[in-house]
Each structure stands twice: as structure tokens, then as C-alpha cells.
Computed example of a mutant assay.
Amino acid sequence: MLRLLVLAALVLCGQCYDGVQFMEDNTRVVGGTNAAKNAWPWQISLQYQSGSSWYHTCGGSLIRANRVLTAAHCVDRTVSFRVALGEHNLSQNDGTEQVISVSRIVKHASWNPNNVANGYDIAILYLASNAVLNSYVKLAALPSDGAVLANNYGCIITGWGRTSTNGSLPSILQQAPLPVVAHSTCSTSSYWGSTVKTTMVCAGGDGVTAGCNGDSGGPLNCAVNGVYQVHGIASFVSSLGCNAYLKPTVFTRVSAYISWINANV
């Protein structure tokens, strides 16, 4: 029966692999609320070109004036990309946006788009020019090398992802609380089992709030000593539904890749 459920999910989802679903494409956070304008100034909208138009596909975090951290699966397609910084409402000009083209993409050498459970869903985007840092556009703080947050640690996901599985597409940046689920719990058979590796972070799983399509690449924001750090890069959810019970949103654990990040910025 489980195999049939997985196969059904694969048929229904163009970006599903072995029961997981990537969270890219023009979509938003499940169970979230509108974020205050520019409350998350390192959050970017990754956009791709189709014809003469640009479309949101993923999130990301500005980590240098000309570098963005995102998920590798967000940039597997061969298209032109750009990032929008200082963005809040995708459907209007807020007067705070900076739009910069992506000049180079570096994906982790071990990333395999056909085996998401292997991990390494991480990429760095080189921007064609430096962003102007101000109150609307700021650099993300990253965790220390190897840092692991405790079970139930309070974090917040942000992004322009679906508000429900196959749901509506609000234009305003969303935010939702997602407490960390310890790897020792998330890797049990009741949760994700062996799909989840120690280089990943699980958060949520209560069946209410979750990441969804369009949130991929975006940050899991966790306050440490009063400063928000990007501890996760949104990677995948269950193909049974974005907020499937006991299937937390899974993130690439940023602290597992600090050396790789430093070598590529």
C-alpha cells in the first residue's frame, strides 16, 4: 500500500521523488500570516525568465552583497535567473526592491536531483552586481559550524509559498512558526525514517503550519542570543501534502555546510 501511495504521488507531482516533493514554483507558506514589510531583509525572491516575463520560483538568503544562498534543486533548470531583494508584495512596486541578475551558479558537487534523500541540496548564486545594503536589504547571519538546535526550538519559516496544498497564491511575504523536530525523532519510522539525514533539519509536522511549493531555497530563521540566524534552507515536504501530519518540512542544515559556503563566497 505504501508503494502505491508513493507511485500515485509521483504521477500527480512533477517534482516528486520517493514520496518527497520539492517546494519550488510560483507558490506560498501553509498556515502563515503576512510578514511586516521588510521584516526579513535577507529574504530574496528567486525568479526565472519565460518569454518576456519573470516569475517567482524559490526563496533564498542574501549572505554577501553579491551572494545568495538557496537550494540546489531551485536552479537545476537551464533558464535565466534574477533575484529581487527588498521585496514584500510581488504584485506591486513597493519602492524598496532591488533586482539583480544571477551571473553564476555553484551547486554542491554531490547534489543529485534524482536522489534528494542523499542531501546536498544547497547552492550559491553569484550576483552580477552588489546589492545596496540598507534597512530593507541586509545580510543574513549564519550559524556556527556544526551547530544543532534542540528539539522544539522555536524557528520561523518565511517565503512566498502556497498557503495550503494546491492552494492560493498570496503576493505578500508569509511567515509561520515551525519548531525544530530533533533528528532522533524525525528519523524514526513514524516520521521521515531514513529519508532524513543528519545534514538536514526537520521543523513543524503538526499538520497545521509548513513550507510548501514556492518556499524552496528560503530560510528557516531561528533566533540565537537575540539574533536571527538562517539555520535551514527549505528543501522538501511530503508528496501526501505540504502539511501532512508527522511529516515536518525538511531543510538543508546550514551549519553542516559552513566550510563549503566559506569556500564558495
Rank of each mutant, 00 (worst) to 15 (best):
L2I: 05
V6K: 09
V6G: 08
L7A: 13
A8F: 05
A9Y: 07
L10V: 03
V11H: 06
C13S: 07
G14N: 03
Q15E: 10
Q15Y: 12
C16Y: 04
G19W: 07
G19N: 08
Q21C: 10
M23F: 02
T27L: 03
T33V: 11
T33I: 10
N34W: 00
K37Q: 11
W42V: 02
I44D: 01
I44R: 09
I44Q: 06
Q47I: 10
Y48K: 14
Y48I: 11
Q49N: 03
G51S: 05
G51C: 04
S53H: 12
W54K: 03
Y55C: 04
H56Y: 09
C58I: 02
G59Q: 02
G59C: 08
G59F: 00
G60Y: 07
L62R: 00
L62Y: 00
A65R: 12
A65K: 12
V68N: 01
T70W: 03
H73W: 03
C74K: 02
V79S: 11
V83W: 02
L85V: 01
L90I: 09
N93G: 00
D94P: 00
Q98L: 01
Q98H: 02
V99Y: 06
S101M: 06
V102E: 02
V102K: 06
S103Q: 10
V106E: 05
K107Q: 07
K107M: 06
K107I: 00
S110P: 00
W111K: 12
W111Y: 15
W111G: 05
N112I: 00
P113S: 06
N114I: 02
N115R: 06
I122C: 04
Y126K: 10
A128D: 06
N130V: 03
A131F: 01
K138D: 03
K138C: 04
L139E: 08
L139T: 12
A141K: 13
A141W: 10
V148Y: 01
N151V: 04
N152F: 08
N152T: 13
G154D: 15
G154Q: 15
I156C: 07
I156L: 14
W160K: 01
G161S: 11
S164C: 13
G167L: 12
G167Y: 11
S168F: 14
S171H: 14
I172G: 03
L173R: 01
Q175W: 00
A176N: 14
A176T: 15
P179F: 07
A182D: 10
H183L: 10
S184N: 14
S184R: 11
C186S: 13
C186G: 13
C186H: 08
S187D: 14
T188P: 14
T188K: 15
S190L: 14
S194Q: 15
T195D: 13
T195P: 07
C202N: 07
C202P: 07
G204L: 13
G204F: 09
D206C: 14
D206Y: 15
G211K: 05
C212T: 06
G214S: 13
D215F: 05
G218I: 06
G218P: 07
P219G: 08
L220H: 15
L220E: 14
C222E: 04
N225M: 10
G226E: 08
G226L: 10
V230M: 12
V230C: 13
H231S: 14
A234G: 11
S235D: 10
S235T: 11
S238H: 02
G241H: 03
G241C: 05
C242F: 10
A244M: 11
Y245T: 12
P248K: 06
T249S: 15
F251Q: 09
N262D: 14
N264R: 15
